[in-house]
Design a protein around this nucleic acid. Structure first.
Length: 584
RNA sequence: GCGAGCGUAGCACAAUGGAUAGUGUAGUGGCCUCCGAAGCCAUUGAUGUGGGUUCGAUUCCCGCCGCUCGCACCA
């Protein structure tokens, strides 16, 4: 009989069937969940609520249910009733080994995972920086979390389209083009265009702030751009091209590749229809010269406007976001969109989504699933948003470079004899991975304290700890001359015995639940925590149980544990967007 | 002012209404003639406050205190 991929889900189904067989009333929810290891591997708490609602003795109900369990469940698990009516399930050693034998390769895990969200389709909207400026630390979380979520959803079987909704059409261009025309330094532009554009933008911005006449000239530049004056479009095109090249360097480091890069300019000619439709439907109205949407039934948005066209007639991000949803629905046939955006923009998305629901309902357009996947702010050690000492935003490029430099120092310290090129390569993986992992390892909703020392210190729940575990396993196979996952070796494995072998195995078989939990809540930290626990169990196993023993069946089963640990750690880290190493 | 979110050990973080609230760091005490000590083992220490719902509350509801964020043309 085949070994189920997701043991908890399978157990839940068995219990559901047993409930029917035992004559329990519907609805009965088994409520299977992972258990504290002291109680077993899984627990089912559903009996408590069921018995309570019907004034039954929960332990009696539990006994009825256990009596109706199919043979394969009682064969795989030791089942006990505990406390007021908890059902505890502890996998027998043979069941653990069977699962590990059945899931020996990445494809087998992938196949198992891909059923969860088969048939779903999502556009993931993340990163989305503004052109003409460099990406800074504020862009980190959206990129890192967005990528991890995209990978998790795709792994779970969903069709995922990654869309980088860049800000390439904002008011910044008026000031920038104004400054470009008067102050461009062509040699600087040739050397590093993005630096020069940034300098020009700052120059234009401060000039406009101090002089109203300049502000008006900048506005005029913007109008010329928006009305399609070729000379303006030429400069604008240059800016975007240079920006995208700079972005791509960062994306390459972070392992990000987009399917679509449809920025605000793409929707420029699509906003007029929005104004017309929303006005015609009575959703939008003029207010103080702007076109706005109010939601009378909403306590806040009955008075807080959703501005879809500014009083100067220009579009803003509400206009383009509306046009974007329409385009994705009508043209891309999208049924679900995720916005991986800072939680401070919560009101915007709430207003956007409410507006779309009313609008689409009125025009008989299917309403897509829309979700704001929010995240907290990156804070510095002073608990304020992270900045450089002189109050500037930290460039993402510089931040990643510093991460690699710090990792390099560490590699040289720990492993000085490696060839220089390899030390650099390791530092890159460890440095970038540490930044990604630190961001992913905590609940995305909370603000996140950026601290170099903790991030790359290699102790605790860090990328380096996990990468180290992977590297050690590679080292074992190198040293002993075995191939990870080789069936010829693994068929000789004897049953798991020692407490550390069993603890590791019990953790490994819960990979499916960890993926499922992280993907369903779109919270990668659940996967991080799981991987950290795997690495911890492995380290304990590694120091307690020697792999290189003469007893061949014992050695085989320990090699099998090493191979599966490696497989799951590497798979998991990959899902988070990290690279792994065979040596570090 | 209105609204949203957050208060868990010295610090940083977990806990899908379940059993004795977990982990890291810092502190203390052990473990390298032994597969990578970037490691392992042991140990000290916490739910802001007052109520409520529940068989069971860090989790859900209400009050208070404290912090953060958002609230008309930036995104």
């Amino acid at each position: 009989m085949p070994v189920p991929f997701n043991l908890a889900a399978s157990l839940d189904a068995s219990l559901q069937a047993a409930a029917t067989a035992a004559g329990l009333e519907t609805p009965f929810a088994a409520e299977v969940r992972g258990a504290d290891p002291r109680h077993g591997d899984f627990q089912a708490n559903g009996v408590l609520g069921y018995a309570k609602a019907r004034k039954l003795n929960p332990r009696t109900v539990a006994q009825q249910l256990v009596a109706a369990l199919p043979a394969e469940v009682t064969a795989a698990y030791e089942v006990t009733i505990a406390g007021p009516g908890f059902l505890n399930f502890a996998l027998r050693a043979a069941g653990l080994l069977a699962w590990l034998q059945a899931h020996a390769r990445a494809e087998q895990l992938a196949t198992g995972a891909a059923t969860t969200r088969a048939g779903e389709s999502w556009i993931v909207d993340y990163s989305s920086p503004n052109t003409a400026k460099q990406m800074h630390v504020g862009h980190l979380r959206s990129a890192v979390i967005g990528e991890a979520i995209a990978r998790l959803l795709a792994y779970s079987g969903a069709k995922v389209t990654r869309d980088n909704h860049i800000g390439d059409w904002g008011t910044q261009f008026g000031k920038l083009i104004w400054a470009y025309k008067r102050h461009v330094d062509t040699t600087a532009l040739a050397r590093d265009p993005i630096e020069e554009f940034e300098r020009l933008y700052k120059l234009g911005n401060s000039a406009a702030e101090t002089d109203i006449a300049i502000m008006d000239e900048a506005r005029a530049e913007l109008v010329q751009l928006q009305t399609g004056k070729p000379e303006s479009l030429e400069v604008w095109g240059q800016i975007n091209e240079a920006s995208l090249r700079a972005f791509q360097k960062v994306y390459d480091q972070l392992g990000i590749r987009f399917d679509l890069t449809l920025g605000e300019s793409f929707y420029n000619d699509k906003v007029a229809r929005i104004y017309a439709e929303l006005t015609q439907l009575g959703l939008a109205q003029e207010s103080l010269g702007a076109l706005v949407v109010f939601h009378p039934e909403h306590p806040r948005f009955k008075e807080q406007p959703f501005i879809i066209r500014k009083s100067d007639g220009a579009a803003n991000y509400a206009s383009t976001d509306l046009a974007t949803i329409l385009y994705r629905t009508e043209v891309l046939k999208s049924t679900g969109m995720l916005y991986v955006v800072d939680k401070r923009q919560g009101d915007h998305f709430e207003q956007l989504f409410i507006t779309v629901r009313k609008w689409f309902t009125a025009i008989h357009q299917p309403v897509p699933r829309l979700e704001h996947v929010d995240f907290g702010t990156v804070l510095g050690e002073n608990n304020k948003p992270l900045k450089t000492r002189d109050g500037e935003n930290i460039k993402l490029k510089d931040l990643l470079t510093e991460a690699c430099d710090r990792a390099y120092t560490l590699v040289c310290d720990k492993n000085p004899d490696l060839p220089e090129a390899e030390k650099r390569a390791i530092a890159e993986v460890v440095g970038i991975g540490s930044v990604q992992y630190a961001d992913l390892a905590q609940n995305r909703s909370s603000d996140y304290l950026f601290a170099w020392d903790r991030m790359i210190s290699l102790e605790g729940n860090t990328a380096a700890y996990l990468l180290y575990a992977v590297a050690r396993i590679h080292s074992i196979f190198r040293k002993l001359g075995f191939t990870p996952g080789d069936p010829a070796t693994e068929t000789a494995a004897s049953g798991l015995e020692t407490p550390t072998e069993l603890a590791l195995a019990r953790k490994l078989v819960k990979f499916p639940e960890a993926i499922q939990l992280a993907a369903s809540q779109m919270r990668p930290h659940f996967l991080c925590l799981y991987l950290y626990e795997v690495a911890g169990e492995f380290s304990a196993f590694y120091s307690a149980d020697k792999v290189a023993v003469d007893d061949a069946p014992v050695r085989a089963r320990r090699l099998l544990l090493c191979a599966r640990t490696m497989l799951i750690l590497e798979n998991g880290l990959q899902l988070l967007g990290l690279r792994t190493l065979a040596r570090m």
